[in-house]
């Protein structure tokens, strides 16, 4: 992975889930510490709605407890991400407000709620850069960086060829870098 996240063993997730199902609050907190913020970020980038992002991430954890998936089905990280991704897709379809690429300004996306959610102005700008991408590029970027999916998993999840996924991610990152350079986040963009 290019962007190493917190290190932990995949088996830690399954152990903590089992303990949480038996009422272990500490195990439940560890699971949330490990995944909740990432899932909120994913849903936020996909929909632009801070309120939905919180609800979707929490819903994923509740569904995790109800379903109690087995380790043979994949990683717990992937399971949670897939739930949030599908919830976000459903929300985007259901939403009355069309997400326009050219007009994805943060002013349309509950700025006060968003500002209270992100930790810094830089993060706020990064969210804006990602929201400025077209749907396909944004999906590839979000699933890769925040879903922590492999390219093969993203291809399977989105139903597009592997090469297309890689190409979309490439252009997504390139565009984000240029956008953030204009905003002064990246001092130099080669």
């Amino acid at each position: 992975m290019v962007y190493p996240k917190g290190t932990y063993e995949v088996s830690d997730d399954w152990r903590d889930l089992d303990q949480a199902r038996h009422g272990d609050e500490a195990a439940w907190r560890r699971l949330m510490e490990r995944h909740l913020s990432r899932l909120v970020a994913l849903a936020l980038m996909m929909t632009g709605s801070p309120e939905f992002a919180q609800d979707a991430a929490q819903e994923a954890f509740v569904r995790l407890l109800k379903a109690n998936p087995a380790p043979e089905q994949g990683t717990l990280r992937g399971y949670l991400t897939t739930i949030v991704y599908h919830l976000a897709l459903k929300e985007n379809r259901r939403s009355a407000r069309q997400q326009n690429v050219e007009n994805s300004s943060l002013e349309d996306d509950s700025p006060s709620a968003l500002e209270s959610m992100v930790r810094s102005e830089r993060e706020w700008l990064v969210v804006g850069a990602i929201r400025a991408l077209d749907d396909a590029q944004r999906t590839a970027l979000v699933l890769r960086f925040y879903g922590e999916h492999t390219y093969e998993e993203i291809a399977a999840l989105t139903g597009v060829p592997l090469g297309t996924v890689k190409s979309r991610l490439f252009y997504a990152v390139k565009q984000c870098r240029e956008w953030l350079k204009e905003k002064g986040v990246f001092k130099e963009c080669m």
Binding site: S37, L44, A53, M117, V126, L141
Partner: peptide
């Protein structure tokens, strides 16, 4: 930086 947004949850 692009991959590192960690919103309050």
């Amino acid at each position: 930086i692009i991959a590192g947004v960690q919103p309050e949850a």
